[in-house]
């Protein structure tokens, strides 16, 4: 993996699109970690006299119906949204790769059963599957994240399984068996390291889709409870003021779009590097 990262650093990131994307991601991550550094306004309590102000030098994204600075709310909402997305990816990655690894390595009836199960998860549209999980678990950012993660489990399981199969039938694994290596050694030393690259690249690519799904559920009102700021719910709040305050929904939404676009660019670069790595 470090090998992969150095290659990405040294070669691929020479492309301007990658550099811009990296900058966007870095800024957003900084918002998530230290929001206070980027804005002096309070994200929760506003100044009623300043309600629904259009963007200007003082309020970059304008203000909302309670006079709160929208840029501050966007910056402070970043942490929750990004953490939810990462949690969702971790859920999908761990559960999916686990299933894929077991299915691919054991093969036979176990493989058949597990893959049929993931087929079914793919048969239910992702958003509906997440919504069903939310219905059962209840509302809240963490539950939304878990729900979105479960909807992505099947994708990870399939990619992991195909990678494991590819590696397992590679002649170097056969050579390792002939050399006398045991099953555990083969999995740890050959299968996992060689299968991990594409799966992690998928995680990077999927991160964008997961952020969108988490935002969509939060937009629908199943995420954080007000007044806690969160990207999706910010856009939803602005819905009622669409005719009089265009900036209210537009600018936070634009932040989501830029971030997802940047993640997508980086993810695809990583995936490409992973492919040429072999």
């Amino acid at each position: 993996m470090t090998h992969l990262l150095t290659r990405v650093r040294t070669r691929a990131l020479a492309r301007p699109a990658d550099l811009v994307a990296l900058a966007v991601v870095a800024v957003v991550l900084a918002w998530a970690l230290i929001p206070g550094l980027f804005t002096g306004y309070d994200p929760v309590t506003g100044v009623p006299a300043d309600r629904l102000r259009p963007p200007d030098g003082a309020h970059w994204f304008g203000t909302d119906h309670l006079g709160r600075d929208l840029f501050a709310r966007t910056v402070h909402g970043t942490s929750l949204s990004v953490r939810a997305a990462l949690l969702a990816i971790v859920v999908a990655l761990v559960a999916g790769s686990g299933i894929g690894l077991v299915a691919g390595f054991l093969g036979g009836p176990v493989d058949d059963a597990l893959m049929r199960a993931t087929d079914v998860l793919l048969a239910i549209p992702g958003l509906l599957l997440s919504l069903a999980v939310v219905t059962a678990l209840g509302f809240g950012t963490v539950k939304v994240a878990v729900a979105v993660g479960i909807a992505s489990v099947a994708t990870f399981a399939r990619v992991m399984r195909s990678q494991v199969l590819r590696v397992r039938h590679a002649t170097y694994v056969e050579a390792a068996r002939l050399a006398g290596s045991g099953r555990a050694a083969v999995v740890l030393r050959h299968v996992l390291p060689n299968a991990a690259g594409p799966v992690l690249a998928l995680a990077a690519v999927e991160l964008g889709a997961v952020i969108l799904a988490v935002s969509a559920l939060s937009f629908l009102g199943y995420g954080a409870t007000p007044p806690t700021p969160e990207w999706g719910s910010l856009v939803a709040e602005g819905r009622d003021y669409l005719a009089v305050a265009w900036w209210y929904s537009t600018l936070p939404g634009l932040v989501i779009a830029f971030f997802v676009l940047a993640i997508g660019v980086l993810g695809r670069t990583l995936a490409r590097e992973g492919r040429t790595d072999r």
Partner: peptide, 21 residues
Amino acid sequence: YSSLDPRFTVAAVVEEPLRAH
């Protein structure tokens, strides 16, 4: 081209049977 693990060094490839045994 496919009988050597792309992530192993040459030394690790040759050492693998020795380690296994």
